[in-house]
Amino acid sequence: MKQAIIRTKGLSKEYVMGAEIIYALRGIDVEIERNEYVALMGPSGSGKSTFMNLIGCLDTPTAGEYWLNGTAVARLNDDQLAAIRNREIGFVFQTFNLLPRATALHNVELPLIYGGTGARERRERAEHVLERVGLADRMTHRPSELSGGQKQRVAVARALVNDPAILLADEPTGNLDSRTGAEIMALFDELHDSGQTILLVTHEHDVALHANRRITLLDGLIESDETQAAQVAV
């Protein structure tokens, strides 16, 4: 039997804006198993980012349940959430979000610093994961000295360095040209092949085709959830 890394039940998020209540998510039931590769789609404002933030423990739901690796997340306090983000979640953002003045190596070490890993081990692991994303020769470069695709690789390396249960990517190719985007997608495919569980948000159909499951949101609800083999040759 497959083990669910992520399981949600009635996951909801409401925002109160003055007198108005915005229902960003209205009860999402979903299970994602180990080594699944899920693309989250849907029109703008459908709740994709909101869902990612809840899954990534950056935010807490207003209603519903969420189990990450069997742990009920909804009732954890701030520090416990931080620890889960540190160990179980790897986030990749559309805008890379790297420290502009730090080297690639230091950027990748960051989660390990907050995890309390010693300096020596930090460096070894950061180097190793940078090699894995193909940046062995760019370790001491700063973000301003890297191309967009390389920056996103650094961000991916940072997300992977703690060997997270799931890699979350909110439009990782949104700021990249199509060729560089394709390179990043190839990297994701590789990671998936080596066992990584991935959840990614995208607007682009051909990006979604890399995944083997596509969930589409509409107005805070799941509109469709289809599993089929990836349609892109790796």
């Binding site: 701030d78 520090d79 931080a82 983000r85 540190n86 160990r87 979640i89 986030f91 960051l110 907050y114």
Partner: peptide, 11 residues
């Protein structure tokens, strides 16, 4: 970003 990679409030 620091919080997203695991920085706690006290960090």
């Amino acid at each position: 970003m620091r919080k997203s990679v695991g920085a706690r409030r006290r960090d």
